[in-house]
């Protein structure tokens, strides 16, 4: 048998593969270059800075892991880390539940469905500064509409939303929920529309009620979307900065100071960029750990 055509074919195949791989590399270059430039390089540079005393005048001296030691010896670190997690605990569930409820409502064939969907999604396109200033004014204790409305409803005393420990986290959560719920809603809506209609029809024939259809068809049908949403919300809540920076300045008395704001203040306001870089690296590792745990806990098949 003549082997030449087989060899030729092999050559052509390997040539094609090399071509395909080159093509693939070319396709990811537009991502790789900005990734290396704006993510990898700053992380490496940040790690380098974290091993030094570094201020406005640049590098002062090499201190090895001293900055890391200082972080763990400082009680403020644990306080602000807890604040960041506390926000995850109150904001992530509320925004997910609200988003799901809104998606369920909009998924019905109701009047002005598109308009309602747009109205709820609209705040999401605003920047964090804009929404923070809006809510800063709305929550103003003396002249703000929120207290005005509560007053009309019969509340005897003004609530100091942004300066009272009991209310301040809820005020920030409320503003954040209002801002991001539209995005959560849209993702849930997409998930809802993926659930085949015949599942519901079959359940109706079997005599299932609305509640049991929700529990046994809708919720399992949304599980994949839910996992992504939880993952995304936990990370974005941990990164809370803009809202507290503008609405409370970390107050009252540092009670809404979060990790990101702590890093910002250490670097830019206290001029300790080495320490701030170390804090960033530590917080980055913590977030990565959380991401890994989340991946392990949720379905590995996904």
């Amino acid at each position: 048998m003549d082997t030449k055509p087989i060899e030729l074919r092999k050559k052509r195949v390997s040539g094609n593969r090399a071509k395909a791989e080159l093509k693939a590399i070319l396709y990811i270059v537009p991502f790789l270059i900005p990734f290396a430039l704006f993510y990898l390089w700053p992380v490496l540079r940040g790690t380098w800075i974290s091993l030094h005393v570094w201020n406005i005048q640049g590098m002062q001296r090499y201190v090895a892991l001293d900055n890391y030691k200082r972080i763990f010896e400082n009680s403020d670190f644990y306080k602000y880390l807890w604040n960041s997690f506390y926000f995850v605990l109150i904001c992530a569930p509320t925004v997910l539940i609200l988003g799901l409820i809104l998606a369920l409502i909009i998924n019905q064939r109701i009047w002005l469905r598109t308009l309602i969907r747009s109205v709820y999604f609209l705040p999401y396109v605003l920047s964090v500064s804009v929404i923070s200033f809006i809510w800063l004014k709305l929550f103003d204790p003396k002249n703000g509409p929120v207290n005005g409305l509560l007053g009309l409803l019969g509340l005897p005393q003004d609530i100091n939303w942004l300066t009272d420990h009991r209310f301040v986290w809820w005020a920030i959560t409320f503003a954040t929920d209002w801002w991001t719920v539209g995005f959560v809603m849209v993702l849930f809506l997409a998930g809802l529309q993926e659930i085949p209609q015949d599942h519901y029809e079959a359940a109706t024939i079997d005599g299932a009620g609305t509640w049991s259809k929700f529990w046994h068809i809708t919720i399992p049908g949304l599980s994949r979307v839910m996992k992504i949403q939880v993952f995304y919300q936990v990370i974005s809540c941990l990164k809370l900065f803009g809202q507290v920076q503008i609405m409370t300045g970390g107050g009252p008395g540092n009670s809404t100071n979060t990790m990101i704001r702590y890093i910002y203040v250490t670097g830019f306001k206290k001029d300790m960029f080495g320490l701030a870089s170390a804090q960033s690296i530590v917080f980055c590792v913590i977030m990565l750990l959380i991401a890994v745990i989340q991946f392990k806990l949720t379905d590995r098949k996904d």
């Binding site: 970390g250 107050g251 009252p252 008395g253 203040v265 206290k270 001029d271």
Partner: peptide, 22 residues
């Protein structure tokens, strides 16, 4: 040259004292 940092700490800690009724 550390005044800016000192002032930030002063401001934060005084806020803690008055806002937390410490």
């Amino acid at each position: 040259d550390k005044y800016s940092a000192l002032y930030t700490v002063l401001s934060e800690e005084l806020q803690n004292i008055i806002a937390n009724r410490q």
